[in-house]
């Protein structure tokens, strides 16, 4: 019954709307404001980059791009909202690496094919930390200690169970021949509480990104052992995993722009072009590098491939950690 109600109301409003819009012929996308859904909270890293992108798109396409935060459930709520939005090009969103984990963790059925991936714009490598008073001095010692006695140490997941940093640390362990499921992982709300727990002595090792740990590194409460990347992050003295333990790993968190499945071709093309221009602009580059966000680019089919690869990788790591349900 509710359905009929809704459709009657819809028909009525559609007529109202048609009468109003009947004037000019179909103009080019975007002809009205676009909503940008962010699955993470206002004030966080994803939110910050999304707002910058929205501003640049707005400057380029001359329509407001409004950032809307839809938080909760480790990003499931926001990612679902993007996938279920009307595919008219007027709702897009920022998606993050977690999209590749929900299916494995049994949290949601979301997958790459539920989206129209537009472009990848950022990658932040994870890094490994110990408290300043830890007996472990460098990454080599850390891995040796972990190998020698898996039951002795408590590892922070650095995020919720199966989150980005949890997987980043897990994939390094896999490369180095350690078995992630032999260890006790302590989950947390995010990087800040995980690092606090590490300083408080509740855990022995914690993964997070370098910028997230900057304040505590500066305070001399933490030591960074290595960054899970193939190149060093400027401004930090953490060695790459290759330099530290001889394992080339690139693991961390990524962010990209996507819309719901079946977006109009014209909108996708215009948006991709505008995003590419924004990504190349000095304003965006300055903003990203000065805040410690890594730049990355992949658009269209290339981004689809990247997402599928990421989803598969997430599955491998989550299985190794012992979290994958299927």
């Amino acid at each position: 019954m509710f359905k009929t109600w809704k459709s009657v109301a819809f028909a009525a409003s559609a007529m109202l709307g048609l009468a109003a819009l009947a004037g000019p012929a179909q103009a080019a996308w975007p002809e009205r404001p676009v909503t940008v859904i962010v699955p993470w909270a206002a004030g966080g890293g994803t939110d910050a980059t999304a707002r910058m992108i929205a501003k640049l798109l707005q400057d380029e396409l001359k329509q407001p791009f409004n950032v809307v935060n839809r938080t909760g459930g480790g990003g499931v709520v926001g990612h679902s909202a993007i996938a279920q939005a009307p595919a008219d090009g007027y709702t897009i969103g920022v998606i993050t690496i977690e999209i590749g984990t929900y299916r494995w963790l049994g949290q949601s059925d979301l997958k790459t094919s539920d989206y129209t991936p537009i472009a990848l714009y950022n990658f932040d490598p994870g890094a490994l930390f110990v408290a300043a008073n830890s007996p472990v001095k460098n990454a080599k010692e850390a891995l040796e200690a972990l190998r020698a006695d898996p039951k002795k140490f408590k590892l922070a997941s650095g995020s919720s169970i199966g989150g980005a940093w949890h997987m980043a640390f897990g994939s390094l362990m896999l490369k180095a021949g350690l078995k992630p499921d032999q260890y006790t992982w302590i989950p947390s709300q995010g990087a800040a509480p995980a690092l606090q727990e590490l300083v408080a002595g509740g855990t022995d090792f914690a993964p997070a990104s370098l910028p997230e740990a900057k304040s505590l590194l500066d305070a001399g409460k933490l030591r960074s052992l290595m960054v899970f990347d193939t190149k060093r992050t400027p401004g930090y003295d953490a060695p790459t995993s290759m330099e530290a333990v001889g394992q080339a790993v690139k693991a961390g968190a990524w962010r990209g722009v996507a819309g719901p499945k079946g977006m109009p071709k014209e909108a996708v093309e215009t948006l991709t072009r505008a995003l590419e221009k924004a990504h190349k602009s000095a304003e965006f580059r300055d903003f990203m590098t000065s805040r410690g966000f890594g730049l990355e680019w992949a658009a269209g089919a290339e981004f689809v491939k990247f997402m599928e690869q990421s989803e598969a990788d997430c599955g491998t790591v989550l299985k190794a950690i012992g979290l994958a349900k299927n």
């Binding site: 559609a14 109202l16 709307g17 109003a20 819009l21 002809e31 909503t35 409004n66 809307v68």
Partner: peptide
């Protein structure tokens, strides 16, 4: 900037 829906007023 709360995204209250505009419905038929969208674009107007």
């Amino acid at each position: 900037l709360v995204p209250l829906p505009l419905g038929p007023l969208t674009g107007l």
